[in-house]
Structures are given as structure tokens and as C-alpha cells.
Design a protein around this nucleic acid. Structure first.
Lengths: 251, 251
DNA sequence: CGCTGCCTTGATCTTCTTCAAAACGTGTGG
DNA sequence: CCACACGTTTTGAAGAAGATCAAGGCAGCG
């Protein structure tokens, strides 16, 4: 209302093009897939990756493309969509450094079933399915970690599915904002800024509502003092208040 | 309308209590987790499983319980729910022999995040998390297969999420019936019978609608000659017709 | 300054839920 | 074998939540 902020979202991206060898090694070492490995193993795995850069809004892979690679986000953010041609679009997730997308298992002729778009300039680590398969076979620890990672993703999917199926738009919105805040949040003027470019439309696409409804709900939350927001950004002021909204099924 | 059928759903369950050693070996050999292993390996893995029986409608594990085991369905059917206390319930899936539930990865103090209920008398193979972890480490092939299985489950979840978020009740219903038909179907009088006890209420809980809406939609489908159904059962007469409904977003 | 693309807001309309009650099927015990 | 009682299914009418349609406002940018 009173004084408006400029968009406070910072770019997390490094330079698009270069992932120095040291940076790559550090990324791989810290990636959830490869934690607790010997330096030698890290090097061996590192040699199987290539790094690739994408500038903001470029499509990295498209649903239906031949699925032959696994990607790990190194710097920047990637938006993962489930589209399916016929109109229904869902923004599944916004991936941050360390998270993966693409084909984790695929042998034989499979297709990507999601579309990935660079939400800002990013650097990605790319490994072919065959090479990843070799890594899994050679390093049982990595396989076990991969199983864990996927297992968490399944659990998260179930949670979202339940919300999509059973809860009100307001409830889902509050839940989504909290989740984005936890995942992408950065302290900012005493609030928790969701440090990613998120339009009302994208917000809507993450929880199956329309842009207009998303806008109305964001306005309402802002009026209640739960959040603060502008064009393309949202910061969370009162997480407790939001949490209460995610629990009230009845209202 | 004219002539009503008795419920034609057959029980798939063997005797609740006994999974003979031979049966167990066969089940493990044919389970997607352990395909293409040597007989010796099968025996080694088999020795790590226990078999347990549950009679119809018994709760096998509850959300929030200590997650220490992985289960594979041997005979019968298991319903997997995501409930979460506060009212929103989603029936995630109906599992048939060969499918798994429970904790696939869990080390440390984790909890089940789903509830599993025996949909009919069933026999399950149970393995502790530690033992499964050992199996994964000792048999890289199993780890790779596990990664694939989970990866497919993630994909399926994304599909359901998109439908829950974007499509009409009718569209989702048609999609669900086709899916259940493919998964649990058995030829019957020239139709494809969904060979599982599925009430209108459960149908509704799988796609986030109310019992009443599910009932209305089932009636409509029946009137259109797409399906045939009675209390607790549904058979698909015209899959092509249903498929068309899952594609029309606009109508 | 004015353009373009997000965001907001309002009015209307559709879909689905909710509440209520009746009809039906199925298993039970007489 | 019949009658009854229970849980499921069906159907109706009213209501609410959200989608849709249509303008208008505001921010950022050339």
C-alpha cells in the first residue's frame, strides 16, 4: 500500500558458461547423490559429467524428447512442468542447486515426461543414462542415496496430491507459500523472501487454480499481514499465521 | 436396469496364512525388484524376507508408525491411503501382487507417511530396512531396478497431480476407470471387469471428489453404455469412449 | 511518454459440494 | 424361504467455491 519495494529477488546464477573444475567437484561432492564418497570416487564420477549452461527462459528439455540424460542443477533455478499437450499444465516444482531432473533410470527408448525451463541463467551438470547406470552399478552407496532421494520425491508427491484433491484454494496457497519459503527463502528485512521469480500465474499453476484466484488470495493474505508481495515476488511475514490456514480444513 | 448381476469380483487371495517356500521364491523371482538374478542370489534375498498374512480390512501399517520395513504384495490387494489426520483423505493406489509399500529407504527414525489396508485377505513379504539396505548394497542390479521402479512411481504421481489440478470430475473419473481397468482388469462377459472391491466412496477418494459426484458420474457413464456396474464393482464396456472423455478438456 | 505485460477487481456462471431422504442390495436371523 | 436391518447407492434441491469473462490499473522499460 504505502511504500512499494523494487523487486528484491536476487539472481542466484553464476556466469552462465563456466563451471570451473573446482566448482564442479565441489557441486558433485555436495550433491545429495554423492555425499560421503572418497575423493577418488568423486573424480571418477566427475569425469562422467559434462556441464552445460542455459540462459533464463530457455527450455532445457521438453516432454516427449528422447530421454537420455540426467541433469543436476549447479547454479540458478529450473522450473519443472508437467504439461501433456491437451491443456492441463502443472508446475511441479522449482528446482534449486543440488536437485535433479531428467531421466534417472531410462534404458531403452523412453521419453521425458516433464518439461524443464531455466527460471534464470543456470549451469547444469549433465550425465548420460548409460554413464549414470554405470555409476549406480559401480558405487552402491550412490544407488542407495538415489533410492532415498526418489523415495522422498514420491512422498512429496503424495502430499501435494492429497492437497490438490481435498483442500481449498486458500489452504493450498498457504501451504505452497510456506513450502517455497522453506525451500527458496532468504532473510530480507526481517521477513522470509521467496528468492525466485514467481508470477501469480506460476503460483496458480503449482496448485491447480487460476491466475485470478491466486491474485485474490495473495491480496487477501497481504491484507491480513501474512505476507508482503509485489510483481513477481513474495515475502513471508507471518509463517505461523499461514500454517494455521493450512491446518483449518473447515472454514 | 434390466437384469442385474451378482458382484462378479473374484477374490485373488490365496489362503491368508501360508506362503510356501516355493511360492515365495517364485514371487521374489518374478518381483520387479529382483528380476534377472541368479538362483543363488534369489535364495540369499529370500532368506531375508518374512511372510505375513492379513485378513480383509485389517490395517497393515498406519501413517506415523515407525517406518522400519518394506512390504511386497504376494497375494491379494492392498489399499494405500494418504490421510494426514486433518480430514483430507486420498486413496493413492490399489496395489496388486508384485507391488511394494512401506519404507524403501528409511534409515534413522522415520515414519510411514501412508496407511496400508488389506483390501482382501492377503499375503505379504516383509523385509526390514536394514536388510533391504544390505540387499541394495550387495546387489547393484537390485538397486538399479529399485531406482527404475521409484522413478516410474514419480512419473505416475505427476500424471495424477496434473489431473487433480486441471481436469473436471468427469474427465478424472474416466481416466481412473481406464487405469484401474488396465491394472486390475479381468475379461468377463466380453467386458473388462475391474477385479477389486471398489465402492463409489473409494472411487471418489482416488480422484478428490465426493461420493455423490462419483455416483452421478458412474450412472451417467452407465447410461451412455461406457461401463456396467453394480454395488462394489465396475466393468468397462467401451474403453475408447472413456478415452475420448479423458482427452476432451473442453466440454 | 506511451507501450507491453503483469496484476487486480468486479460480475456472472458453472461445477461440484453439501445436506437430506429415499431406494436398493446384501447378508442375517427367524 | 421370507422378512428385516444395515450399509451402499441414488437422486434431488440448495448453496458455495472457484472459473470465466471483461475492464481497468500499475510497474517497468524502451
Amino acid at each position: 500500500m504505502s511504500h512499494h519495494h523494487r523487486n528484491p529477488v536476487h539472481s542466484l546464477a553464476g556466469p552462465v558458461e563456466h563451471c570451473s573444475l573446482d566448482l564442479r567437484r565441489k557441486l558433485i561432492r555436495e550433491s545429495p547423490f554423492f555425499s560421503n564418497l572418497e575423493p577418488g570416487q568423486i573424480d571418477e564420477i566427475n569425469s562422467r559429467f559434462r556441464d552445460v549452461g542455459f540462459s533464463a527462459n530457455k527450455t532445457i528439455l521438453r516432454e516427449g524428447d528422447n530421454a537420455d540424460s540426467l541433469f543436476i542443477v549447479a547454479t540458478g533455478l529450473v522450473k519443472l512442468y508437467s504439461a501433456s499437450g491437451d491443456g492441463g499444465i502443472l508446475l511441479i516444482d522449482i528446482l534449486k542447486p543440488g536437485e535433479h531432473f531428467g531421466s534417472v533410470a531410462g534404458f531403452g527408448p523412453e521419453c521425458y515426461e516433464e518439461t524443464a525451463v531455466a527460471a534464470m541463467d543456470c549451469c547444469l551438470l549433465k550425465i548420460s543414462s548409460e554413464n549414470f547406470h554405470r555409476v549406480l552399478t559401480m558405487h552402491p552407496q550412490v544407488a542407495v542415496r538415489t533410492v532415498e532421494i526418489l523415495s522422498h520425491r514420491v512422498r512429496f508427491s503424495h502430499e501435494l496430491m492429497r492437497r490438490l484433491g481435498s483442500y481449498s484454494a486458500e489452504n493450498r496457497s498457504a501451504w505452497l507459500l510456506l513450502r517455497l519459503g522453506e525451500k527458496l527463502g532468504r532473510p530480507w528485512e526481517g521477513k522470509n523472501l521467496i528468492n525466485a521469480p514467481v508470477s501469480r500465474e506460476e503460483l496458480a499453476a503449482m496448485i491447480g487454480i487460476t491466475t485470478e484466484t491466486a491474485s485474490r488470495i495473495v491480496s487477501r493474505f497481504q491484507k491480513k499481514g501474512l505476507i508482503e508481495s509485489g510483481r513477481g515476488w513474495i515475502a513471508i511475514k507471518d509463517p505461523e499465521g499461514l500454517k494455521k490456514l493450512t491446518e483449518d480444513v473447515f472454514d
